[in-house]
């Protein structure tokens, strides 16, 4: 076949969006001694996405240890989830960014694929 149509879908055609707020979260003392907490809100309006990963980084984008209910958040389409990020007192000064990134299942062949990542900066 001279012209094989090789279609690569890079982005989905319908409106879809990813939000992660606040822009500048504050680390506050949690109910656990020596552990600080940031409250984040994740909103998924990407119909083809059901999972978002969470990560914490320092100013040079090296990963920082943290705890949360699940580092892979399962979230439905048009759902809003409140996520608590717990960081040890020893890492509080180093922690700079809290990020959420869309995770795409291998089975999603559908019109395609943009991985979105939003990073908030710790005040």
């Amino acid at each position: 076949m001279k012209f094989i149509v090789l279609v690569l879908c890079l982005l989905s055609g319908y409106a879809n969006a990813h939000q992660f707020t606040p822009t500048y979260p504050k680390l506050e003392v949690s109910h656990i001694l020596g552990v600080y907490k940031a409250e984040m809100v994740l909103f998924n309006a990407r119909e083809e996405i059901r999972y978002y990963s969470l990560n914490v980084f320092d100013k040079d984008w090296n990963p920082i240890k943290f705890a949360t209910e699940s580092k892979l958040v399962t979230i439905d389409y048009q759902e809003r989830k409140y996520v608590n990020i717990y960081i040890s007192k020893t890492d509080v000064k180093k922690a700079k960014y809290i990020c959420s990134k869309s995770k795409i299942l291998e089975s999603v062949k559908d019109p395609s694929i943009v991985a979105s990542r939003i990073c908030s900066k710790i005040e």
Binding site: C9, L11, Y24, I104, I113, V114, S116, K121
Partner: peptide
């Protein structure tokens, strides 16, 4: 299939 990564960094 290929992937574009779109980021928003505070």
């Amino acid at each position: 299939t290929a992937l574009i990564v779109a980021e928003c960094i505070a």
